[in-house]
Design a protein around this nucleic acid. Structure first.
Length: 358
DNA sequence: AATACGTGGCC
DNA sequence: TGGCCAAGTAT
């Protein structure tokens, strides 16, 4: 085992984070490996998502679907609703598909190699390596955003991301030990998350400070270098919150593919790049006494949405392609955050009401 | 290979 | 306060 791995594992034994899906080094020393289902579920949720955001969702999913077979047998709508708010909803659809494949073709068990894991829906290079290393003790190179930061600093890699990825992978592979590869992967990620942070890294506490090339230089924080990002355009549209006298609102389900795929929404116009600011009620789903309720702004990864919100009270009647849903039952719907924002703008107590009547 | 894909927290 | 960032994947 090389110098880096030995020092890092010693640090991990003392300073590892305790996380709900993790088996700590003390328990692992007695031969206990974490449940692959827990590792998989957490890794999918953690893709581009903070630990803090994931925790309550992980607990909720595990309580409701304790084993992968339970998830395979679940209603897709229920899974989407449980995922609502966590973002990147293709993850939830692939999670369900993956559970079904495992239940049908693998007897409800996870494969234990990188290649077989990577063949599953929603599992890419990172997640396949992470599950293989953490749940099955296989010495795979696990490279996430934390590892990219740690490694580019350790070796002062001047190539910007994403061009530097092959070099980072090669370096990580060299460092990954045959023994405790799962702990090593988690140690690298813990180091990146707690000490080798993007801003103001705590180098004085770092177990690798003596061998860090970036620290020997003048400014470790400048790593990793990154290619400049494209500007985020603004798109505009209108959302229509139709409410009946008995407190129902009109919802639709978005198509499976694309933005917010398979999630619930209130009727909206298209979201276009036009900047004239003109958003009228001509595109409303039906004629009603639409009242303007102002605008909500929501920032997606690649554009900013400014949604003009309209509210109609005492709306009624059958509407094709939509469903009238009790405001008190909105908590069971797969509503993404942007839609909760729009509904709250029109009906401030909408989600308070749904909480009061479980 | 470059782009689409959410959300919330932080400074 | 606006940009950056978080355990990436699919196409």
């Amino acid at each position: 085992m090389d110098h880096f791995a030995r020092k890092l594992l010693a640090w991990y034994d003392r300073h590892h984070r305790d996380l709900p899906w993790r088996v700590g080094p003390a328990d692992k020393a007695e031969g206990t490996l974490p449940d692959p289902y827990h590792v998989w579920l957490s890794e999918i949720m953690l893709q581009q998502t903070t630990v803090q955001a994931v925790k309550p969702y992980f607990d909720k999913f595990l309580a409701r679907w304790p084993r992968v077979d339970d998830l395979a047998a679940a209603d897709t709508d229920a899974v989407m609703a449980a995922w609502a708010g966590l973002g990147y909803y293709a993850r939830a659809r692939n999670l369900k598909k993956c559970a079904e494949v495992l239940a049908r073709d693998h007897g409800g068990r996870f494969p234990d190699t990188f290649d077989d894991l990577k063949a599953l829906p929603g599992i890419g290079d990172y997640t396949a390596a992470a599950i293989a290393a953490i749940a099955f003790d296989r010495p795979e190179a696990v490279v996430d955003g934390n590892v990219e930061r740690v490694v580019t600093r350790l070796f002062a890699i001047e190539t910007p991301l994403p061009s530097a990825k092959p070099e980072i992978r090669a370096r990580t592979k060299e460092m990954t030990p045959q023994e405790r590869p799962g702990d090593f992967a988690q140690a690298m990620m813990d180091l990146g998350a707690t000490l080798c942070t993007p801003k103001r890294p705590a180098c004085v506490l770092c177990p690798l400070r003596e061998e860090c090339t970036a620290l020997a230089g003048d400014d470790p924080q400048r790593f990793p270098l990154k290619m400049p990002k494209a500007a985020r355009p603004v798109r505009r549209g209108a959302a229509f919150v139709a409410e009946t006298a008995d407190r129902k609102i009109l919802l639709r389900t978005r198509t499976e593919k694309g933005l917010l795929g398979g999630m619930a929404e209130v009727p909206t116009t298209g979201w276009t790049a036009r900047t004239d600011g003109e958003t009228g009620t001509d595109a409303a789903p039906f004629a009603a006494d639409w009242r303007s309720k102002g605008e909500v702004v929501h920032v997606f990864t690649h554009f900013e949405l400014r949604l003009a919100v309209f509210h109609a009270e005492r709306a009624e009647g059958p509407v094709s392609g939509g469903r009238w849903t009790k405001i008190a039952a909105l908590g069971e719907e797969a509503l993404p955050s942007v839609m909760k924002k729009a509904i709250t703008q029109a009906i401030p107590d909408a989600f308070k009401a749904s909480r009061e009547r479980p």
